[in-house]
Nucleic acid binder design. Structure first.
Length: 834
RNA sequence: GCCCUGGUGGCGGAAUCGGUAGACGCGUCGGACUUAAAAUCCGAUUGGGCGAAUAACUCAGUGCCAGUUCAAGUCUGGCCCAGGGCACCA
């Protein structure tokens, strides 16, 4: 065994051996139980960053640990390889997006291999390859057949920088999730996926996800935004052309219905023209035009002063016969509820602000118990619970009860109903871009929209496109793509030029790993049912809503289509924290990035793996420090020297057959106990929330203990050698999921002929995983006063006796009365004195 | 405004059940080895008080204020701060 640790040399060597021997291939059939460990697959942006390193190292250690524990582990990797950056590169530098993507994948693959990750590369999945996107298109058609995909004209989010539309989930604070550009509204005919059909079950099933953090679950629950309320219909009494119209509103406060003093419809409300008097028309038109021009940011800003204009018409409140005016205001959203709001200024903060501004009347209908409210004195809306007033037969009722009673009255008399409402909107999946999976439909002059027949898939991306066009999708410049024939009538037809949102591609990739080469189906049902759900999914919190919600929807939809039999894709989810440098997120613009390649080169992958796991628990943010890397490198050197320096005294055979014979020398017994404790603690720390930071501190403790033990010996007898062998081989095995190369090299140098990564996980003996004696803590009045080494088997009385005999205790209790003595077996005695 | 996390030395962070607060590491300081340096090894490292600098002793200390308890970083109530998410969703 070499005296010094040369990571670069041994890492290269073992990576090649593992690749040549197919060490990480996963058979589908095995008598072992399955375990599916998965990292969120990356976009091939060009190079790995430290966030990737952290993510993949965490999953890799989990995969290796589970394998050692006897599972048949599936641990695959792939590429989320459709998307804008490739196309932007094409526009800027004239590179073919496919070539750009393929080259990035090649480079990043090399980096992943350098990190020593145990992937089964035979199962690699690449979403931009025709053999994958054929099945993305096929799944689109299945959703279409099931009525879960539809096309409609709607006001959609448009990012002019990306020159495409976006889904609601991709608009963050009114800006594009990718480029941060302000989002505008546009009216376009677009493809939608009916995720709202699954709103209830997506919400309900969050309860089943015991292996998910509450933060992600509440974020999804908020996004789905379920609320209970009622729909009330208000007849218009003075519609300009005498038409009989009703305006339905959704409210969560039916209890306040007697306090309506006006009603607001969204500027985009479909019947708004019918509700506007000729005198008000000009004004309303102007207001609507203004609203349309506003960006999402302007419109959504909550501190903006509310504006609106009256329509000139009025409704009657069927509950009390009161007449109130109709307004339009942009605080009413056309996409939510019915697009109209009943305004009760006294009990809603927004309505209150609006009414104050436009001098609309106030009417109190809820009052706090035992108190009255005076509209003239109100400074803000009263939104708390209370008792009904000014509400006819409902007066005196508690408002929570009134919600039900009032809605029941509306149901009975035919002007309302109970209603459950969701905030979630349908998923807009059309993208006016080239580098995505083409939506497989054609437009026939005679037959209209026609899906492409399944046997004609994939609809391939054309190669003859001009990326320099502005304002339209490059795909439309192809001379070969657009013109086609109708699958129905054989006549002339045009292809759909929109491609799919890449989140579609990533909503099912984890399923494909179960059967990545299938050319008859996206995956065989038995295989997908065998491997899924994913046992442990690891990735960034930024996908808490986007990818994770879409994937849950896909799984449920595909289950209902009959392609699989489970209803949640990811059993356990670990959202890892960010990698920071000097307290802020690593980013190119801040110039505080650390290049993984440099770390591999200077210290080796084992150091990188060890460090990225060492300082923080995985779910928390991790602050990168160069000194920390250095410290980990030193530690690996220290382990190496420990093994190399004792190599001639270590026997693999003795280590593996070692049993405590019951009569070891004291210091040997102690070391064996330290090893057993380390095995127990490390195993528990990994099993319990993957606390790798404490795992690593225990590697160090064990290493320090072996060094101390060695330092006290000038020579080794047979028993010493056995114990030393056991300790060092145990250390290597415990470290093998993290320091994958070092431990493999040492294992072989010590005579191992198989791979250390094929070894079963260490086991501990409960009787040995504790110290041979106990340290009795002696307290007087709850304060630590003495520590006494004691035999474990002592009875409570004996422990008490021991404590009372402590000179220290005698001194402190002299002349005082002992009120009480508390004895905690094997641990502590507390003497209470006065 | 609502929801979720978190708050422990100079720093990252430990501490299954309420039972030795500060594991392990980083940094800093001191020492050994060396002609010297690097590497390595050993020791100290929460603050205050009293000592002569050591030891011993002692008081305080886990964001703040109360409470429960023989005993609170841990449990209960109230508050403060930081990070993240949602937010004109009626």
């Amino acid at each position: 065994m070499k005296e010094s640790y040369f990571p670069q040399e041994i890492e290269k060597k073992w990576q090649k051996v593992w690749e040549d021997t197919g060490a990480f291939k996963t058979p589908d059939i095995s008598d072992k139980p399955k375990y599916f460990a998965l990292s969120m697959f990356p976009y091939p942006s060009g190079k790995l960053h430290m966030g990737h390193v952290r993510n993949y190292t965490i999953t890799d250690v989990i995969a290796r640990f589970k394998k050692a524990q006897g599972f048949n582990v599936l641990h695959p990797m792939g590429w989320d390889s459709f998307g804008l950056p490739a196309e932007n590169a094409a526009m800027k530098h004239g590179v073919d997006p496919e070539k750009w993507t393929v080259e990035n994948i090649a480079y990043m693959t090399k980096q992943l291999k350098k990190l020593g990750l145990s992937y089964d590369w035979n199962r690699e999945v690449t979403t931009c390859k025709p053999d994958y996107y054929k099945w993305t298109q096929w799944l689109f058609l299945q959703l279409y057949k099931k009525g879960l995909v539809y096309k409609k004209e709607a006001a959609v989010n448009w990012c002019s920088e990306c020159a495409t539309v976006l889904a609601n989930e991709q608009v963050i604070d009114g800006k594009c999730w990718r480029c941060d550009h302000e989002v505008e509204k546009k009216y376009l005919s677009q493809w939608f996926v009916k995720i709202t059909d699954y709103a209830e079950v997506l919400l309900e099933d969050l309860d089943k996800l015991e292996g998910w953090g509450d933060n992600v679950k509440t974020m999804q629950a908020n996004w789905i935004g379920k609320s209970h309320g009622a729909i009330f219909k208000f007849p218009v009494v003075d519609a300009p052309n005498g038409e009989k119209i009703e305006v339905p509103v959704y409210t969560t406060r039916p209890d306040t219905v007697h306090g309506i003093t006006y009603l607001v419809v969204a500027p985009e409300y479909k019947d708004i023209e019918k509700l506007t008097t000729p005198e008000n028309k000009a004004c309303v038109e102007e207001y609507r035009a203004n609203a349309r021009k506003m960006t999402e940011i302007e419109r959504l800003s909550t501190d903006r002063v509310k504006t609106g204009v009256p329509l000139g018409t009025h409704c009657i409140n069927p509950f009390n016969g009161e007449k109130f005016p109709l307004w339009t205001a942009d605080y009413a959203l056309v996409e939510y509820g019915t697009g109209a709001v009943m305004a009760v200024p006294t009990h809603d903060t927004r309505d209150f602000a609006f009414a104050k501004k436009y001098n609309l009347p106030l009417k109190v209908v809820i009052k706090p118990e035992g108190k009255d409210l005076n509209t003239a004195e109100m400074q803000e809306a009263y939104t708390e619970a209370g008792i009904l007033t000014n509400s006819n037969e409902f007066d005196g009722m508690k408002n929570e009860e009134a919600k039900k009673a009032i809605t029941e009255k509306a149901v009975k008399e035919g002007f309302g109903e109970f209603k459950t409402q969701y905030r979630l909107r349908d998923w807009l999946i059309s993208r006016q871009r080239y580098w995505g999976a083409p939506i497989p439909v054609v437009y026939c002059e005679k037959c209209g929209i026609q899906p492409v027949p399944e046997d004609q898939l994939p609809v391939l991306l054309p190669k003859d496109v001009d990326f320099s066009v502005v304002g339209k999708s490059p795909i439309t410049t192809s001379k070969t793509f657009m013109e086609t024939t109708c699958p129905c009538c054989g006549g002339k037809a045009k292809r759909e030029t929109d491609t799919m949102d890449t989140f579609i591609c990533s909503s099912w990739y984890y399923l494909r790993y179960s059967d990545p080469k299938n050319d008859k189906l996206p995956f065989a049902k038995d295989k997908v049912n065998h491997w899924l759900p994913v046992d442990q999914y690891v990735g960034g919190i930024e996908h808490a809503i986007l990818h994770l919600l879409y994937s849950r929807f896909f799984t449920k939809a595909l289950r209902d289509i009959g392609l699989l039999d489970f209803d949640e894709p990811f059993k356990n989810l670990l959202t890892q924290g960010m990698v920071l440098k000097d307290g802020s997120k690593m980013s190119k613009s801040k110039g505080n990035t650390v290049d993984p390649d440099e770390i591999f080169e200077n210290y080796g992958a084992d150091t990188a793996r060890l460090f990225i796991l060492s300082d923080s628990p995985p779910a928390r943010d991790f602050d990168w420090s160069d000194a920390g890397v250095e410290g980990c490198y030193k530690f690996l050197n220290r382990v190496w020297r420990l093994v190399a320096g004792n190599a001639e005294n270590i026997s693999l055979e003795k280590a593996l057959n070692f049993k405590h014979n019951g009569s070891l020398k004291k210091e040997n017994d102690d070391l064996v106990r330290v090893v057993h404790m380390a095995i127990k603690d490390i195993t528990n720390d990994i099993s319990n929330d993957f606390q790798f930071n404490t795992v690593i501190s225990k590697y160090r403790e064990l290493t320090n203990a072996i060094y101390d033990w060695c330092g006290k010996k000038s020579q080794f007898d047979d028993e010493d050698k056995e114990v030393l062998s056991f300790a060092i081989i145990s250390l290597l095995k415990l470290m093998s999921p993290v320091a994958v190369h070092l431990t493999e090299e040492a294992w072989h140098d010590l005579g191992g002929t198989t791979s250390i990564h094929e070894e079963p996980w260490c086991e501990w003996d409960e009787n040995l995983a504790k110290a041979s004696s106990i340290t009795l803590i002696v307290q007087v009045n709850g304060k630590l006063k003495d520590k006494i080494e004691a035999d474990e088997g002592l009875s409570q009385d004996e422990l008490k006796e021991l404590a009372l005999n402590s000179p220290k205790v005698k001194e402190l209790t002299a002349g005082k009365t002992i009120v009480k003595t508390i004895v905690v077996p094997k641990k502590l005695v507390n003497i209470v004195v006065k």
